[in-house]
Design a protein around this nucleic acid. Sequence first.
DNA 1: CTGAAAGCGCTAACAT
DNA 2: ATGTTAGCGCTTTCAG
Lengths: 342, 342
Amino acid sequence: MAVTIKDIAKLANVSITTVSRVINNKTEGVSEETRNRILQLVKELGYQPNAIARGLVTKKTKTVGLIIPDISNPFFPDIARGVEDSAHIYGYNVFLCNTDDNLEKESEYINALKEKYVDGIIFTSSAPSNYEHIMELIKSGVPVIMMDRRIESEDIYGVFIDNYEGGYLATKHLIDLGHRKIACITGPLNVRNARERLAGYKKGLLENGLEVDEELIFEGDYKINSGIVGTEKLLNNNKDITAIFACNDLMAYGAYKTIRSYGYKIPDDISIVGFDDIQLSQILEPQLTTIRQPAYDMGLTAARMLIKLIEGKKLNKKIVTFKPQLIIRQSTGTVKEEKNYS
Amino acid sequence: MAVTIKDIAKLANVSITTVSRVINNKTEGVSEETRNRILQLVKELGYQPNAIARGLVTKKTKTVGLIIPDISNPFFPDIARGVEDSAHIYGYNVFLCNTDDNLEKESEYINALKEKYVDGIIFTSSAPSNYEHIMELIKSGVPVIMMDRRIESEDIYGVFIDNYEGGYLATKHLIDLGHRKIACITGPLNVRNARERLAGYKKGLLENGLEVDEELIFEGDYKINSGIVGTEKLLNNNKDITAIFACNDLMAYGAYKTIRSYGYKIPDDISIVGFDDIQLSQILEPQLTTIRQPAYDMGLTAARMLIKLIEGKKLNKKIVTFKPQLIIRQSTGTVKEEKNYS
DNA sequence: CTGAAAGCGCTAACAT
DNA sequence: ATGTTAGCGCTTTCAG
C-alpha cells in the first residue's frame, strides 16, 4: 500500500495531526525543525496525499465536471481547453462528459458527477425548455455555470455570447456590401441561441428597409449536412440569392460544397458568412468570413467563475456576455452588377 | 446534508450493512421484503451513494485519466470521444488533461491523477525517450495504456497505428500515379511515429528504385505553420517536385496554402497526401487524399483495454496496432506530361 | 437473512 | 507547538 500520513507520523515521532498540518501548509503551530523533518520524510518516502480520504472529510474534491454535447464538434475543443487550462491553474481536474444533446445522458452525467462529489459543473445543455434537471441540480447546492446555450431561467450563472448582435453583424456586413437577397440557414430553432441569431438577421434586414422573406430562411441543425441541403433548397427556389448567412461555420462549409457543386463561385456569385470562427475557417479556400466567438476565452472565464463560486468568492456579474466579432475574410464580396440588376 | 446509507437504515429499521447490500445488488442475504422496503426509501429520499466514501474503502473510483497533448488539436477530439464513450458504457468517468507536450505538465497530471486515485490512465506522451515518469507510474501499479505515440519500452500496453505502413502507403500511392520527385514534410523526428512515417516513405521510394534525396525532406512539427514553411522551402529549392507527402493533415493544410500562394494547382501541378484523416480533410477543396487513422476506434479500444485491465481481466494482446488506410480523394493525380519531362 | 464493529486516510475541533 | 479524538460514508469481515 501507498505510504500514508500515519507512516510519516510514526517515523517522525509526531502525531498525524502535525503531519497533516505541514502537508497542508498550515503556517502556524509547527516548529521549523519538525516541519523540515516531516518534509524530508515526505520526499524520501514519496508520500502523496490521498485526495479521496481528504475529500471525504472536507467535502471538496478539487474536481469539476464539464458537460457538453460533443467534444468532436469542432466548436467545443477550444472551450474545453479553456476550461481545463483555467481549472489546472487553480488545482482542479475536469471530468469530460458528452451528452449528444440527449436529455437522458445529461441526467446520467449529473448523477454520476454528484456521486463523485465534483465541486461544480460547467454545463452546455441542449435542454431547450425542459431544464428541470438543471434547476434541480442547482437547487441541490452544486455550483453551476451555464455555457454557450442559455436557458430561460433568470436564476443562473452563465457565460454566453450575444447571438443577437452576432446575427445582426453578419447581416449588416452583407447589406453593406450591397446584398439584398440574403438567405439564412439557422440552427435548430428550439435552441435559444439559434433563435437569437435569426432575430439578429431579421433586425439587420428590417433596419435597412429590407423585408423578411420566409422563403429565404431554412432551419438547419448546426451540422454540415444541413448546410448542404439547406443551400440546395434555397438555391433551387430562389435563383436570385446573392448571399447566405449560415448560423454556424459547419453549415457554412456545407454551403461551400453545394455552391461549388452548382458551379457558382464564392464570393463572386454568392457571399457567405458563418458563425463561430472555428480554427479551420481560416484554412478553407476562400477563407471564411465569420462571426467570431472567443471559445477559448469563454471556457477560461466559465471555469474561473465556477471556481470563484466554489471557493465562496463574490462574482461581480452572474452572467458574462461576450461580444461577437465580425471577421472579414474572403468569402464575402460586393454584389456583381449583372446579378444585381438581372 | 445529503441523505446517507445511515438515514436509510434508520428509517428501514435495518442495519447499514443491509442497506449497503441492496445498494450494491448483492444478490444473496437480503429478503425480498426488506430489499423492497429499502429500495422504496432510496427512491423516496433520492439517495445517492457517495462515491468518495466508497472509493476510500474499495480503492476503486470508477474514474480514469486521459492525458493528451492538446484537445484543440483536431486529431484528439475523436480519440477523446472514443475513450469517453467507452468509459461511460462501463460506468467510468474520465479526467481530461492537456500537457502541451510538456514533460513537467505530464508529471503534474500523473501526480494529480494518482492522488485522486484514478483506476487507470490512457496516455499519449510526448516523451521522446525520456519516459522514466511513465515507467514509474506503471511500476506504481496504475494500469496504463499508451496511445498513439509509442515509447520504446517493451513492457507496456498500448494502442497504436502502423505508421511505417502508413508512410509507405502514402508514398506508394504517389509513385503509382507516376510521381518521381516526391517531397516529405515529416513530424518532429524525436517522436517515434514521425520517424516511422518517414521510414515508410523511404521504403516506398527505395522499393521502387527511387533514391532518397535528403533535399526533399523537411522536418516539421505537425503544426500548420510548418506545412507552410516547409513547402516554401521545398518548392524554392526543388522546382521539379510534383508531390508532397505531409506526415499529418494539419501540415498538408499548410502545404495547400503555400502551393496556392505560389499559383500552383492541386493536384494538377502538385499532388498532396496527408496523414490522420481528420474531419475537415473532406471539406477542404480539393478534398485531401490522406492516410486514415481510426481515431475514434483507437480511443474506444484503449478505454476498453484499460477497463479490462482494471477489472482484472486478461487481455489477448498487450499491444493493438491498427492498420492505416489510404483514402483517395482529390488532392492527388497523375503527373502532367510537361512537368514530367521538363 | 441480518447486524456489530472495524477501518479506509484524512481533517478539524478541542485539549494540553 | 503538538497531540487526542471523533468522524466523514461506506464496505467488509466475522458473528449470530
